[in-house]
Amino acid sequence: MELRGYLVGSFPRPAGLIKLLRDYSKGKTSFERLEHEFETTVNRLVRLQAENGLTYVVDGMLLWDDLFRPLSTALDGLEVDGLSRWFDNNVFFKKLVVKNRLTFRQSLDAKFFNPDGVHAFKLILPDPYTAAVLSEDRWYNSLEKQAYDWAACLAQTASSLEKVEQLQLTAPSLVFEKIPRDHLEIAKECVRMVKEKVRCELMLHMPFGNLSNILPEVLDFPADVIGVDVFKTRLNSLAEYSLDKRLYLGVLDGRNTLMEDVETTVRILEGFFSKTGLKQADVGPSCELEFLPFESSEDKVKRLGEVLRRAAERL
């Protein structure tokens, strides 16, 4: 059983950073003080992931107010609108309104992605289909055209950044509810467009929904890794298919503070490997750790490290 482990989204902000961001917006603290706290936290999180044996690390995405906001400054054609619910969570994102043709303007600011050159960094972006579905279209009048332009822009965003070892496209809209077959084709083409432009490993992660909604078609998507939220997808339903693609199994609940039992988790994984004949897989949280208090999110990373170590011992 060969396991790799890594995270699939943002970290929550620690209390100190929350306070400094509030103070900074009111002019009560300096940019330097805020920047120092931000960098200290990023270093702490990267170190935590590295110490726990994670294959790829994220910088925490601490200044991403949501998965779309940084794109409103990186791309032309977008405006930020009001709050919308982030799937079935008590968390809200600001919907983007497409007011003109989407075009790439500039690379993401370093505060949103700044690999240290030492660790293997992953970049996380929305998948083009999810971005199109969750935006308000006032320009294209066509989901397909909008999605393809999202794909072109996101591909350019990713390829404009250096030192990206894995690109993750976060695609909850593919699985949260059943989608029409022609939408699945659009989503697949979008992934192909991104894959064509990037040189790193490409992961398509689908939290908050049941992967069975798009099985087996999703196994033909041109992604290197398919990410599954196993708190929404029955593992047995995956075992029915011939799995020749690398799977990421979100076996740690990213939305609950309960720390998973290491032995039980490894045993379930062993059972799954035995049923499917898989020899390798990736594991981690089911989704971003944003839904947890900061301290609990750190504990989840440590728990992931324990799962990886226990699994390695069983080899």
Partner: peptide, 17 residues
Amino acid sequence: FRGIVRVWDNEYYKKAA
């Protein structure tokens, strides 16, 4: 109570387990 979690942007609420 386990700590604070984000609702949106930099707005948070205290969440219990």
